[in-house]
């Protein structure tokens, strides 16, 4: 490679640096996805969560003991700014609904669905695939329990919808959320977002 040509990785990083990602839910998935995106070069994130950090979040979510009681968005922003002080973070510290979801997402290039409950997941997918048909959304479904991490995959489900998970493992079945399996799903989700932003055909 000649000295005049930029390194391919530099070009890819530049594309990621211009991207905006909306992360809905800052728990086990969202907090870790945010950190992985930032470390990969995505600089602009919208962080959405209504909840505060609790002690029992610390087994899998990117929070610390001294953040217990803080709004998750603020606690996560503090951590992310320690990684990259120049990151552009927009915090939405409230419960979102189908009525204001599109407004909250704003001009994001990609949406990460990272909430807990199935009805809320369905609401987000419903609104985003209906009202934002050209904005890719990466959802996660099926990450609980002790089953093999190799069952967690990423696949395209609809024109602008990608799903990460084994599609089956449900916390309502009594399965616990293990940091290792949650992190596998979060890494799949973050990587799918990166590949979508880089226009990769096979996510």
């Amino acid at each position: 490679m000649s000295a005049e040509q930029p390194h391919p990785d530099t070009e890819l990083r530049a594309r990621l640096a211009k991207a905006e990602v909306a992360i809905i839910g800052c728990g086990g998935l969202g907090s870790n996805v945010a950190a992985m995106l930032l470390r990969s070069g995505v600089r602009t994130l919208t962080l959405v969560d209504f909840d505060t950090v609790a002690k029992d979040n610390l087994n899998r979510q990117l929070f610390f003991r001294d953040q217990i009681g803080m709004p998750k968005t603020e606690a996560l922003a503090d951590t992310l700014l320690r990684i990259d002080p120049e990151a552009e973070l927009r915090l939405v510290d409230r419960c979102i609904s189908s009525a204001d979801l599109v407004e909250v997402i704003g001009d994001a290039d990609v949406i990460a669905e990272a909430v807990d409950g199935a009805p809320t997941k369905a609401m987000i997918l419903e609104v985003c695939t209906r009202d934002l048909p050209d904005v890719p959304i990466i959802t996660v479904s099926g990450l609980a329990g002790y089953d093999s991490a190799n069952l967690i995959v990423t696949e395209k489900l609809a024109v602008n919808l990608y799903v990460v998970g084994d599609l089956e493992s449900d916390i309502r079945s009594g399965l616990s959320l293990l940091a290792s399996r949650v992190m596998v799903a979060a890494a799949h989700q973050a990587h799918a977002i990166i590949r979508v932003l880089l226009d990769c055909e096979d996510i």
Binding site: A118, A144, L157, L167, S169, I171
Partner: peptide, 8 residues
């Protein structure tokens, strides 16, 4: 038809 399951 896709039914999301809980966990996140």
């Amino acid at each position: 038809i896709f039914p999301p399951v809980a966990g996140g």
